[in-house]
Design a protein around this nucleic acid. Structure first.
Lengths: 353, 353
DNA sequence: AAGTTTCATGTAAACGATTACATAGGGACG
DNA sequence: CGTCCCTATGTAATCGTTTACATGAAACTT
């Protein structure tokens, strides 16, 4: 029943090396396609003997399951979407690596979407998830997608499992993986105060951003603990980028009564700010202490090396990916994970003379 | 013929908002599924009237085509794989952004694979492409995948369109997008020489790497043009990372007769090296000039700011994506694109006293 | 020894699109 | 007015899996 040329054999003589299908494997192993499928998905449900034959046939044919067919039938893509605000930002690279590692080990692939502040792209990726191209998503951008179209007949789009990473999304009931931004910022502020600094400037993140809100709150907490007054004039607007740091530096050096320390809420800004400070002929830390946040790779090798808050970026990525995988595989998933940060003391901050 | 409940209507009363299929749209617009499909893929082959009805029905149902079904039938995934050696490396971020932008505009999604030096992962992603999960790939890792298994019955795997980015793959007949590393390195070397430096150290990339080979060749070219002898003792091994730069710096400061200038073949190494040099009590550029390569964001804000070779990273990414899209859509694609680099003169290099 | 589970497998119906082929209607042309 | 061609559409096969259901054999129960 298997030697007689059936009907798909004839074109075998053709040239184009057609990819092997499950049927080819089944025929070669003299089992049904169902058995082949089971041998791959649930080996324990297939006899040792049949399993061996299938394995052999797979090796012989070089069979690789067709993902599209698999997805179509099973509704599983084994793909995860990672949404982030700016791919070019150094801060995300290591997080991405943590995510990728973990997803990879679990057999998931990673699709990246760089939102780039464009609502158009956002809409596109919303459709992307709606179309079922991914099983779940990790959101680093601090908000959900602009959900489904309204319209009368339109059914609510089923939403896929989501995880928020770094920027919590308070309104959403999804796992949140983050650090305690408020506590970390407070700690840094207290550290500066403990060294005798009384006029501490704060270079903020983008207005409205949740990280910014938390860190700002932490800054004020820290001042309060140190019995220092909060002075709005010492808050300089920023947006976490190097350029924002450069601009903040310009504002800083132009001030008549300068602060003795600056707390930048990102290392990128701290590094950009130091650049401007140097160009203005001032010295860090002699004339002014500078602290950062994030502990990116360059913080340790900056000149002077940067006192900052260490974020376990790789671990953050891993934790988020794990949480999502739990969700996808129906396991209970932690609602909120807060990883520990560290105060890393280097050379850019010194006690007030 | 369309008002009478056929057989998929009954469960309509159910709750789970089932995603609309092409059949639902067809029924609502009173046309066949073929017409709906055509209205989307080739609107010009559908009458204005029918097209309008289909549009309306799509809006009403919120229909989004199922990508798996589409791929299964048409063999197109509209996905591109980007293979890179190290996702955490700053250098790649902006390239990725360039790639993503261009792919996005053309309707393609991007899947990222961080090889991480693991052959296991490499094999995995080779299978990935073989399984037809992507239409094409952009390779930033400097070599092809370890191709198909051998075995007797195994047919050669059909290979998908590929593009090599940054690290050329000489053996492969695929579009190569790169800069002229040799010319750029030569230029920098001559620049240093023109400023009076006679003992110029060279911090290399990883041995065997094609970029390294070209840049090293360029370094020697530059020495020759400047009538300087090549001294192997002045070559310090590196691998483009910050840490390698730090180590190179240690070797450098330990030398008895120190060079007066160092050409680091990556900015990351240059920045790491300067760190060590400072720690040893030397000054850049007063005691030693340091040059980099790449012009990453931090080069401009390093202290001192870094003289380097500017690579148009975003444009490199865009060019690679464009070339791949050309290939995928059957258009002729350029065989080799070399984008221009620039010598960026900043403060880390000064004339020899 | 008859009834009940369990196990290993096969059969065939989905999954939701695309597209080759067929068909019908309407000019254009001689 | 018949023939040919073009346009717009419909019918139904196909893409390659997974999986609900059916089947028969073997292993336990009682």
């Amino acid at each position: 029943m298997d030697d007689i040329g059936q009907k798909d054999e004839p074109e075998q003589s053709g040239f184009s090396a057609r990819a092997a299908r499950i049927q080819d494997v089944a025929k070669l192993a003299d089992v049904s396609t169902a058995t082949v499928s089971r041998a791959l998905a649930t080996p324990e449900r297939v006899s040792l003997e049949a399993r061996a034959r299938v394995q052999e046939a797979i090796a012989k044919t070089g069979y690789v399951p067709n993902p599209a067919a698999r997805t179509l039938r099973s509704q599983k893509t084994y793909m995860v979407l990672v949404v982030l605000p700016d791919l070019a930002n150094t801060f995300f690279s290591k997080i991405l690596r943590g995510i990728e590692e973990t997803l990879f080990e679990a057999g998931y692939g990673m699709i990246i979407s760089d939102l780039d502040g464009s609502p158009e792209k956002e809409a596109h990726f919303a459709a992307f998830t709606a179309a079922g191209r991914v099983d779940g998503a990790i959101l680093l951008n601090g908000h959900l997608f602009g959900q489904s179209r309204d319209g009368e007949g339109s059914p609510a789009r089923l939403s896929i499992p989501l995880v928020a990473l770094c920027e919590a999304i308070p309104s959403a009931d999804i796992p949140q993986i983050e650090i305690d931004n408020r506590a970390a910022a407070s700690r840094m502020t207290q550290h500066l105060a403990a060294l005798g600094h009384k006029r501490i400037a704060y270079v903020s993140g983008p207005a409205g951003n949740i990280l910014e809100r938390e860190r700002f709150q932490g800054f004020k907490d820290g001042l309060e603990r140190a019995d220092l007054p909060y002075d709005p004039a010492l808050v300089i607007p920023g947006d976490y980028t190097i350029e924002a740091g450069v601009r903040a530096g310009q504002i800083l050096v132009a001030q008549t009564t300068r602060p003795t320390a600056v707390f930048c809420t990102s290392d990128q800004m701290a590094i950009g700010l130091m650049r401007t400070v140097f160009s203005a002929g001032l010295k860090v830390p002699d004339d002014i202490s500078v602290a950062g946040f994030d502990d990116i790779e360059f913080a340790a090798v900056a000149e002077p090396s940067l006192t900052t808050i260490h974020q376990p970026r790789r671990e953050l990525g891993q934790a988020a990916a794990s949480a999502l995988i739990d969700l996808l595989q129906g396991r209970p998933s932690p609602k909120r994970i807060r990883l520990e940060t560290d105060l890393v003391i280097r050379d850019s901050v010194v006690p007030l003379r």
